[in-house]
Design a protein around this nucleic acid. Sequence first.
DNA 1: AGCTTGATTGCCT
DNA 2: GGCAATCAAGCTA
Length: 183
Amino acid sequence: MTLGPTFFDRPAEAVAPELIGATLLVDRVGGVLVEVEAYDQADPASHSFKGPTPRNAAMFGPPGHAYVYKIYGIHWCLNFVCQPGSAVLIRALEPLHGIDHMHRRRGSVAERQLCSGPGKLCQALGIDSRQNALPLDAAPFSLTQADAVQDVATGPRIGITKGVDTAWRFVRRGSPFLSRPLA
DNA sequence: AGCTTGATTGCCT
DNA sequence: GGCAATCAAGCTA
């Protein structure tokens, strides 16, 4: 079943664990989500913490849309917008579809390193600012619910300096496709 | 208009 | 484990 606005119109920390095991495709390229992180407006680590700006406008737009931004001047990161000011950062997926396309964009790396990190995932799926604010239930996106209950583990989020103690990183336990093992 | 920083990655030792 | 790459948002002035 396709995940749409109703699914995302909830707090990000409630949506995030249910995204583990879901299948994400962009132009027919993608796989199963194995690692995500939740951010909301009360969270000092969130882009939305200080309110709406031109950059984070999509985070305050309708639920179920994409929020794409560039970090460190180099990499793109993909988020799914939940309730206003909250979103889920997509950090890693298990490649299943269009793996040849991914290799063309990422070069000759091991399959487990194709999408093992937010920047790598965006490169492999061809995501950049063009996808910002687009709805997730329409082309080029395809997002479908997990077909089985997932073994989800939680831990501290990665790469942030504030809000470190909030355990809003969600991973599929034991997956070899994570950006890093669970701490 | 100039300065700092970052939800990262890959290459170096 | 350390660190450079590279750029725009968000400050300060």
